[in-house]
């Protein structure tokens, strides 16, 4: 009597897997760093530059949020990229511009920091052009390395 219901439940879970699994198979990259925010942000910027990218000015995400009850003033978006690549890609694929330049957000959680980024591999399904596949792969590999290096950095 219970078996059909249980089987239906598992089929439901399996279907939901099909919906959500690929989205978490690398679409969102997230790491926790033991570095407090004042150390983590410059470390993140160092790691980005070390891989040959150019940084843009860090952008505040939590503008005026203290006024509406948020206690943290430590949430930044760090944009970066290769200047020539940005020029070339935005010219060749204007529809890629909403995702350029690349971005990592970093925010404080107690005395640690969280880093989140959209995996460039997410874009593969929407931009199937062969010449982009290698670029997305490289971006993803670099992004992972940057985030892992910040994650593994010991606090001073």
């Amino acid at each position: 009597m219970k078996k059909p219901a249980a089987a239906a439940s598992w089929i439901g879970v399996a279907l939901l897997f099909l919906i959500s699994t690929p989205l978490w198979g690398g679409d969102l990259l997230m790491v926790r760093s033991q570095l407090p925010f004042p150390q983590a942000q410059p470390r993140l910027e160092e790691e980005i530059v070390a891989l040959g990218y150019t940084l843009s000015q860090a952008r505040r995400v939590d503008i005026d949020l203290v006024g509406v009850g948020f206690t943290s003033g430590t949430y930044r978006a760090i944009s970066y990229g290769d200047p020539e690549e940005i020029k070339m890609l935005s010219r060749r694929y204007p529809e890629l511009t909403p995702f350029l330049p690349l971005q990592i957000v970093i925010f404080a959680e107690r005395n640690e920091s969280l880093l989140v980024a959209l995996s460039p591999l997410y874009l593969k399904a929407f931009f199937p052009q062969p010449d982009l596949a290698g670029i997305f792969m490289r971006w993803n590999r670099d992004l992972q390395q940057i985030m892992e290096n910040v994650r593994d950095a010991p606090p001073e």
């Binding site: 995400v61 939590d62 503008i63 006024g67 509406v68 009850g69 948020f70 971005q103 925010f107 980024a117």
Partner: peptide
């Protein structure tokens, strides 16, 4: 401000 605050309250990663 409301949009930003609501978005971050629903998921702090929305800063992306």
């Amino acid at each position: 401000l409301v949009m930003l605050s609501d978005g971050l309250a629903l998921d702090p990663r929305m800063g992306l």
